[in-house]
Design a protein around this nucleic acid. Structure first.
Length: 546
RNA sequence: GUCCCAGUAGCUCAGCAGGAUAGAGCAUGCGCCUUCUAAGCGCACGGUCGGGGGUUCGAAUCCCUCCUGGGACGCCA
């Protein structure tokens, strides 16, 4: 790339200052070479010449012997295509063998501190489908960011202070009475999940009807605490099983207890960002682009949800992250402007906070959309899903798509052990390579260290393509991190698996030629490493046998 | 009414800091198991990139506008 830059400058077409960024890409079509640049077309306006003429002048200045280039062609409207001396690709094998689990790491993050807050489901019920998508996406994103050189903190914010927790206590109260065979009506905004019926039964088994004799205040206080502990424990269990672990669990109650909510309210008031109207305290969010101002303190003196949330986000800002990412469900998108506005009102840069929105998930079974109902508690929980389809398939499917699209999750497909199921396709490639290595061992073939292998035998087009693909991992990781798009890696790993399966079908790895066998074992060993590395990033296991 | 997301092959989706003939899986059709795992491989079929304008040497990609589908618009959380 530097060679191109120098050639462009040497051809005196443009001054250094006005030189556009030189992009070297891998063309989709092989006939267009190994690398390609459109720099000549980009220079048309500056150099005031037609692109092909520009391309010719640039090419004449390139010293190709210095960069392993075999030949250069000018094609189409003015693309400059580079055809490499293919043996340079053998270096990929040496690199992967040397770096192993670390292969693919890049350092675009340069150690910057990134905090990612995700899932953060209210501890009032079991995690369900939508949370699973957030968990899969969030965790994969964190893995990718860490692999790209960021210092990542995973955080779960526990909303354990609002009205919803009182409703949880009341719901447990009602279920408790029902479990004792008494008449009891669920509260208006009650929680109807199976989990709560279970808690109530458990309480009856443990302690019988003893809570009936308590005062309502005492009883609800106890149920509240009990419910919170149980729900949170359940959430942690589910997430752990889903292979997601958080570095920090921040409790809303703790934020209250530390006086941060009152403090932030005072700070906003002192800064003249609030006013009183209709008996309530409002925050001026409209100057920062919100539709309307928002209430912080209701006319009954209690806080809205926004107020502690501002305190929480201030808390995050104060912890000194370079970047904060919130992953929210689509139903919270309208909430973004007011939180950002509040941060600006406090004097923080809104650019440090990025909110990523995951669209809804629909579940399909037997070709039918599965209906969910809060009222009856008939939602498919994350636990049900893990029982039925397994963690690998869920994580793969939920990471497979960009978060902007509504996602249809087909249960039948996810459980099917067939060619329709892409999870197995990728895992199978890994297992196959492991099998080849087992086979080699049985035949008494010991894989040699790479520096003792003559890779010159790898001359097939399929082998060069595999090597090229393997070589692309670092830039794929960088792109996935830059775009917050781990699904790109699924695409990548699927394509790699596909190329491997095709190669495996066409050529034997273990051949009569000992030297060639060593070279091919090294090659597929690298494929195995890369498959495992990517699967690890998306939280899917890489089985040795299937 | 305002805001967000989507609209690309029969279906589900990639591609979108502009680039060459728009890709993949599934479905459909036809082939391939005496040799390292057939949860596999090969071939074929399939598209006015929602419509219309604009910017550009070049637009699925950027801008404007319209249409369709989904979601959000509380002194709930």
């Amino acid at each position: 790339m530097n060679e191109i830059r120098e050639a462009v400058l040497a051809s005196e077409l443009a001054a250094q200052a006005e030189l556009p960024e030189i992009v070297l890409e891998t063309p989709r079509e092989k006939v267009h070479g190994d690398y390609s640049t459109n720099i000549a077309m980009q220079l048309t306006r500056i150099a005031k010449q037609n692109p092909r003429a520009i391309a010719e002048r640039i090419v004449s200045q390139i010293r190709k012997e210095r960069v392993y280039v075999e030949r250069i062609e000018i094609a189409g409207p003015g693309f400059i295509n580079f055809y490499m001396d293919k043996t340079f690709l053998h270096g990929v094998i040496r690199q992967i063998s040397r770096e192993g689990e670390s292969y693919g790491k890049v350092d675009i993050g340069a150690g910057k501190k990134v905090q990612v807050e995700f899932v953060s489901a209210n501890p009032t019920g079991s995690l369900h489908l939508g949370h699973a998508r957030g968990a899969a996406f969030g965790d994969s994103l964190c893995n990718v960011l860490a692999f790209a050189g960021y210092d990542v903190t995973r955080e779960y914010y526990i909303n354990d202070a609002g009205n919803q927790i009182l409703n949880l206590a009341k719901s447990i109260d009602a279920r408790y009475r029902q479990a004792l065979g008494l008449e009891a009506e669920m509260p208006e905004d009650g929680y109807y999940g199976e989990d709560i019926i279970g808690f109530a039964k458990q309480l009856v088994e443990q302690d019988g009807d003893k809570y009936l004799s308590w005062s309502e205040e005492e009883r609800l206080k106890f149920f509240r605490q009990y419910g919170l502990e149980q729900e949170l424990a359940k959430i942690k269990r589910d997430l752990e099983r889903f292979r997601v672990s958080f570095d920090v669990w921040t409790s809303e109650t703790k934020i209250y207890e530390a006086g941060e909510v009152e403090a932030v309210l005072k700070e906003l008031t002192d800064k003249g960002q609030t006013y009183e109207a209709d008996g309530a305290v409002w925050l001026k969010t409209t100057p920062y682009g919100d539709d309307k101002d928002r209430v912080l303190v209701k006319n009954d003196g209690t806080y809205t949800y926004l107020t502690p949330d501002i305190a929480y986000h201030k808390n995050k800002y104060e912890r000194g992250f370079d970047q904060m990412i919130n992953i929210w469900g689509a139903d919270h998108h309208g909430y973004i402007p007011r939180v950002k506005a509040a941060m600006q009102a406090l004097g923080y840069s809104p650019d440090k906070l990025t909110v990523l929105i995951t669209q809804m998930v629909s579940l399909y079974q037997g070709g039918e959309k599965v209906k969910m109902s809060k009222r009856t508690g008939k939602a498919v929980t994350m636990e049900d899903l893990m029982d039925e389809v397994g963690v690998d398939a869920i994580r793969y499917f939920f990471t497979m798509r960009g978060i902007d699209s509504h996602l249809d999750f087909d249960m039948d497909l996810a459980v099917s052990q067939s060619n329709e199921n892409p999870v197995y396709y990728v895992q199978y490639a890994h297992a196959r390579i492991c099998s080849i290595y087992r086979q080699a061992e049985e035949q008494g073939i010991n894989p040699l260290p790479v520096d003792q292998i003559d890779l010159g035998g790898l001359t097939l087009e399929a082998e060069f393509e595999l090597l090229r693909k393997l070589g692309e991992l670092p830039q794929e990781v960088a792109e996935a991190a830059r775009l917050y798009a781990p699904h790109r890696l699924i695409r990548y790993v699927f394509e790699l698996a596909s190329q491997f399966h095709s190669y495996y079908k066409a050529e034997r790895i273990i051949t009569g030629d000992a030297q060639l066998t060593q070279a091919r074992l090294a090659l597929v060993g690298c494929v195995r490493t890369v498959l495992a590395n990517v699967l690890r990033l998306i939280g899917v296991s890489a089985p040795e046998r299937m």
